[in-house]
């Protein structure tokens, strides 16, 4: 359905996208995972025809979108990172406008609006001005406006930025419903748990390049990480984390407040070594969790940097 070939884009001397290629089939949900500035939004902007690539091709159903973007645009539902709505108009006015902009015919429009309003859960507030909505409701309407024309490809650019957990859950569930109906989705985020929840295929992007791709299990398999240990401790966290990182069985360590996350490359016999380090540094262990490795650990292992750096 969508084929990206060797995409490049620079802003001055900065290479925002540096040779990205991937393919996406009908019904797949692709997650683009990477820290801020990795090149996710630039890649998405080029796929949405908002930016012209310096080099490379984007094929939609075999057609180069730089030669003709009409077919792509007719089938694309784009949800930008910003809340791209008209705040002084009502929710209904916004849905009508974006529906008409996406060429939904007048006859079907109100039925479509009713369906979409049900999915995004704002049916009771459609007559209110958008500026009176909560952040979560605005985000949901932002998504709803891109769904009205039943697009076969939807692009979500960090759609959950800055909202409360409840609204975030609602948005993720809505997107899951959309994907379950067979819509192809590209989803960018730097929240690995969102990508894990939604995406059948994940690309990890850093500094404009794809550094790894596949399912979550395939990505974990690319690293040597066996387990992740989360330690809640009091004491000199920095010294303790530094000493744990020097252990042969440890791949990487991150810490914040009183939590240390340890990615381990060998089996359980190493846990004793970790606990010994904590007691040697007069640390007090409050709790200890042993987990399966997540995408954040994978990213750290592959790049040496945290996702939220």
């Amino acid at each position: 359905m969508l084929k990206i070939e060797n995409l490049h884009k620079s802003y001055g001397k900065t290479k925002a996208v540096d040779g990205i290629s991937f393919e996406l089939n009908q019904g797949e949900v692709l997650g683009l995972l990477g820290p801020n500035g990795a090149g996710k939004s630039t890649t998405i902007a080029m796929i949405s025809t908002l930016l012209k690539p310096d080099q490379g091709r984007i094929l939609f159903n075999g057609e180069d979108i730089q030669k003709s973007s009409k077919a792509l645009k007719n089938n694309l539902g784009y949800v930008p990172q910003e809340i791209a709505l008209y705040p002084t108009l009502t929710g209904m006015d916004n849905l009508v406008f974006w529906g008409r902009a996406n060429q939904v015919n007048k006859k079907d429009l109100h039925k479509r609006i009713e369906n979409v309003a049900n999915i995004i859960g704002i049916k009771d507030r459609l007559k209110d001005k958008v500026e009176t909505y909560s952040g979560g409701m605005k985000r949901r309407l932002n998504i709803g406006c891109a769904m009205l024309h039943n697009p076969s490809l939807m692009i979500f650019d960090e759609p959950t930025v800055g909202i409360d957990p409840q609204s975030r859950r609602h948005i993720l569930d809505s997107i899951k419903d959309i994907s379950d109906n067979g819509t192809t989705i590209i989803y960018t985020s730097h929240y690995m748990e969102e990508v894990e929840f939604l995406c059948s295929k994940i690309l990890i992007i850093d500094r404009g390049k794809i550094i790894a791709g596949g399912t979550k299990d395939e990505l974990v398999a690319l690293t040597k990480i066996e387990k992740q240990v989360h330690l809640e401790i009091t004491g000199n966290i920095e010294n303790i984390a530094d000493s744990i990182n020097k252990l042969a069985s440890v791949d990487s360590v991150t810490f914040s407040d009183n939590l240390i996350k340890v990615s381990m490359i060998s089996n359980s016999t190493s846990y004793i070594e970790i606990l010994t380090v904590v007691t040697d540094h007069d640390g007090k262990l409050l709790s200890m969790d042993i987990k399966e490795p997540d995408l954040e650990a994978v990213f750290l292992s592959l790049t040496g940097r945290e996702l939220r750096d």
Partner: peptide, 13 residues
């Protein structure tokens, strides 16, 4: 600012 113009250009406008 609201990126509505950008969003519009992702349609056939």
């Amino acid at each position: 600012e609201y990126q509505t113009s950008m969003r519009l250009m992702s349609t056939n406008v």
